[in-house]
Amino acid sequence: MIKLEHVVKKIKNKMILDDINFVFHEGRIYGLYGINGSGKTMILRAISGLLLPDGGEIWVDGKMLGKDIDFPESIGLIIENMEMLGQYDAKTNLEIIGKIKKVATVEDIAYILERVGLQQFDGLKVKKYSLGMKQRLNIAQAMFENPDCILLDEPFNALDDEGRRMLADLLLEEKGKGKTIIIAHHYREELEKICDEVLEVNAGAIVCGEGNF
């Protein structure tokens, strides 16, 4: 469970996060939608520990970010332009990242690459990938360690129809395993197809949602 209590963040006198109170539960998919600059990505950054709030508290599985832990202990994240190392193939890239936590096995990597449709490109260097293939690799990167909490910023970008279906299936499968999934996206319609709850973000605040308190 992820709990945000009175989270406030101001950067250069601009309110980025405005008193956010929300609880994200396990086994549910949450969608954040809003216009550009509304604060969707900032909410994901705050939950992932990259953004340190000026006020309020963020609790992940009973541990407070910034006090008990610096980053959530089990998290998968897509944020920004995640360019992997171009000189290696997808498998090697995941192996390099996997060496930090050492929780993913060779089988886990092979499984996720198959799920995102990159298994057939084994040996092809990432610098030769198309945008869509890079996005599939980013998705694999976020999920290959089987994290409890998955935060995805614009995960549908650059994906073709088949890729979108693949991602939706993958997310529903992960939801079935009891994971907390939060997706930031521009289009409400696309979120409504897979999310249990779609939240509108405006001017750094979650303006509607059942989890508001």
Binding site: S48, L77, K101
Partner: peptide, 15 residues
């Protein structure tokens, strides 16, 4: 810190 480095960073227990 770019996106890739962020993916690395969050996997460490401590900043």
């Amino acid at each position: 810190v770019d996106g890739y480095e962020m993916a690395i960073l969050i996997r460490y227990r401590k900043r």
